[in-house]
């Protein structure tokens, strides 16, 4: 029987045994949403193994996929099987997408790596709902770490990555890049900074800029009260230079999270983020339906009408 037509429980059972085809299928169902997706997320949640979740983000062209690719080469050499969710935007006009991130990973990725390309599918809220589900599937299937890679433009893309255990922000040499990263809200979420293409002029200037921002972190809120200071690493991802040090920093950050007790705080925050998204999404739908049902031509002010609809909605 084709995996395609198997019931959800059977798919999950197979995925837990390491059947990659089943994992691939589950991810599709999770992405599609609905009752199957909820059931899968529930089943996977019961099988959670606590994989470390790493978010990698940065401006387009910064070298995120290349860095991720190098990690998929390095980690299997160290005996761990990573899974990657590579997120790219859908075309706002057609809803279609060309997903090309695999190219930078496929030919170097080590044994056991699992790479899945994900499109944002227009409605950004969908991503916030589907990514946690996909991560759960990977975790239950035994992949550790799970790497989420997104372009650091757009609030949801940043939020999704910020909800990881360790968030890596990739910038390139040049003051402009640090400023852009700051504007995009990337600096606040960084646990590790990577200056990629460090062989280019301006790398040390960018490092100085970032150090300066970290020094001012009591103003900007970059530094937490546990005394952790995000390290700034230099890589040339195209040839793998410095990538091992990035992974060492991820492990060091994880160690910090564990010893400082922040790991559970983060996990709780991530759950809250997921629950918030689900509740908000559900409320959004309910609200839309209620608004559709309401007679908007009633001779009330829009303010009063909105209050009335909300009241009714919450009572039901």
């Amino acid at each position: 029987m084709s995996v395609r037509n198997l019931p959800v429980e059977e798919l999950v059972a197979r995925a837990l045994e390491g059947n990659r085809r089943a994992v691939g299928r589950l991810l599709t169902l999770v992405e599609r949403g609905g009752t199957d997706a909820d059931e899968i997320a529930d089943l996977a949640h019961q099988q959670a193994r606590g994989a470390h979740i790493v978010g990698i983000t940065g401006a387009p062209g910064a070298g995120k996929s290349t860095l991720t690719g190098q990690l998929t080469r390095l980690l299997p050499e160290m005996g761990v099987a990573p899974a990657v969710l590579a997120v790219d935007p859908s075309s706002p006009l057609t809803g279609g997408a060309i997903l090309g991130d695999r190219i930078r990973m496929d030919n170097i990725a080590g044994e056991g790596t699992f790479i899945r390309s994900v499109a944002t599918r227009g409605h950004a809220g969908g991503l916030a709902l589907s990514v946690p589900g996909c991560v759960r599937v990977f975790d239950a299937a035994g992949f550790d770490p799970v790497i989420i890679e997104t372009v650091g433009v757009g609030q949801v893309e940043v939020d999704v990555v910020a909800a990881a255990d360790t968030t890596v922000v990739v910038v390139n040499p040049g003051w402009g890049d640090a400023v852009q990263a700051n504007k995009a809200g990337l600096l606040e979420v960084a646990d590790i900074f990577v200056i990629n293409k460090a062989d280019r002029p301006g790398a040390s200037d960018t490092r100085r800029d970032l150090e300066l921002m970290l020094d001012l972190s009591h103003v900007s809120g970059l530094e937490d009260d546990s005394g952790y200071r995000p390290p700034i690493l230099m890589t040339t991802a195209t040839d793998g230079e410095g990538v091992a040090a990035v992974w060492d920093s991820v492990l060091a950050h994880r160690e910090h999270l564990t010893s400082s007790g922040q790991l559970s705080t983060r996990q709780a925050a991530r759950l809250r983020y997921e629950i918030t998204n689900r509740v908000e999404a559900q409320l959004h739908v309910e609200a839309s339906a209620a608004i559709d049902r309401a007679d908007l031509s009633e001779a009330l002010s829009p303010i009063k009408l909105a209050a009335q609809i909300t009241d009714r909605l919450l009572r039901d």
């Binding site: 990659r20 085809r21 691939g24 279609g96 997408a97 060309i98 997903l99 190219i103 899945r116 390309s117």
Partner: peptide
Amino acid sequence: RDAGMEVIYLGLRQTTASIVAAAEQE
């Protein structure tokens, strides 16, 4: 893409094995 599909582009010089692996994961 313009017909609304999601295209996973693997590029040049693929082998049957690399295509199978990608098709499975995707």
